[in-house]
Simulated scan of single mutants.
Amino acid sequence: GQPVVTDAPAPRARGSIASRPTLVTTVDVNAILHNVEHGGKTIVDARAPDRFRGENETIDPVGGHIPGAKNRFFKDNLQADGRFKAPDQLKAELKVAVGDPQDAIMQCGSGVTACHNLLALEVAGMPGAALYPGSWSEWTADPRRAVATGAA
């Protein structure tokens, strides 16, 4: 019951977007394939442990994880009240899963919660890890890529 307008409105002002360097290094699927075959980097998956083990895949067509990956559920970075744990506690916990962040790649289902682990590393004073933004969704898009199940 409202009027319909078919004319496109003219823009009010021009934007001013400036290109800047990324905040973290990103890697593509070819880097992950190379790492699966030759090693050298620790791949850390931020998804829930049951999804990592391949017991409960709610989004992607295949359950499991990238071969050789470790699991660090992003919610393990938080206290019961939802705030990040103290930097020293995060550092102690993240060293187990990540090791040297300079040699680590964060991933998850689609690249989003991997960023939570990247932020936790920053809070812990452990910068330098890379992000695989394609993550599990991209990895499983090609059925020729290996899939691991169970605990790492």
Rank of each mutant, 00 (worst) to 15 (best):
G1Y: 10
G1K: 12
Q2I: 00
P3F: 10
P3K: 14
V5R: 11
T6I: 04
A8E: 12
A10N: 11
A10R: 11
P11D: 10
R14W: 05
G15H: 03
S16N: 01
S16A: 08
I17H: 03
I17M: 00
A18C: 06
S19K: 13
S19E: 13
S19M: 13
P21H: 00
L23N: 05
V24K: 02
T26A: 03
T26F: 01
V29C: 12
V29S: 13
N30P: 01
N30H: 15
A31D: 12
L33E: 15
H34Y: 12
G40Y: 10
K41M: 11
I43C: 02
I43S: 02
I43W: 00
I43T: 02
V44K: 06
D45E: 14
A46Y: 08
A46V: 09
R47Y: 01
P49K: 04
D50M: 05
D50S: 01
F52A: 06
G54R: 07
G54I: 06
G54F: 08
G54W: 05
E55F: 01
E55T: 00
H65N: 12
G68R: 06
A69L: 06
A69D: 08
N71I: 06
N71Y: 02
R72M: 11
R72A: 10
F73E: 08
F74L: 07
K75M: 10
D76K: 07
D76P: 04
Q79M: 13
Q79N: 15
A80E: 13
A80H: 09
F84E: 08
A86V: 09
A86P: 00
P87A: 12
Q89T: 12
Q89C: 02
L90M: 07
L90N: 07
L90V: 02
L90H: 05
L90W: 09
K91F: 05
K91T: 02
A92K: 14
E93M: 06
K95T: 09
A97V: 04
A97S: 13
G99W: 07
G99L: 09
D100R: 04
P101D: 10
Q102F: 12
Q102D: 14
D103T: 13
D103Y: 11
A104W: 03
C108H: 05
G109A: 13
G109F: 08
S110D: 07
G111E: 14
A114Y: 05
C115H: 04
C115E: 04
H116T: 03
H116N: 13
L119Y: 14
L119F: 12
A120R: 02
L121E: 00
V123T: 01
V123I: 05
A124S: 11
A124Y: 11
A124C: 10
G125C: 01
G125F: 02
M126W: 03
P127N: 15
P127T: 15
P127L: 15
P127F: 15
G128E: 15
L131H: 10
P133N: 12
G134V: 08
G134Q: 07
S135Y: 07
W136N: 03
W136F: 07
S137R: 13
S137C: 04
S137G: 10
E138A: 13
E138W: 05
W139N: 12
A141H: 14
D142E: 12
P143E: 14
P143N: 14
P143I: 11
R144W: 01
R144E: 07
R145A: 08
R145W: 05
A146H: 04
V147F: 07
T149F: 06
G150V: 10
G150M: 07
A151F: 05
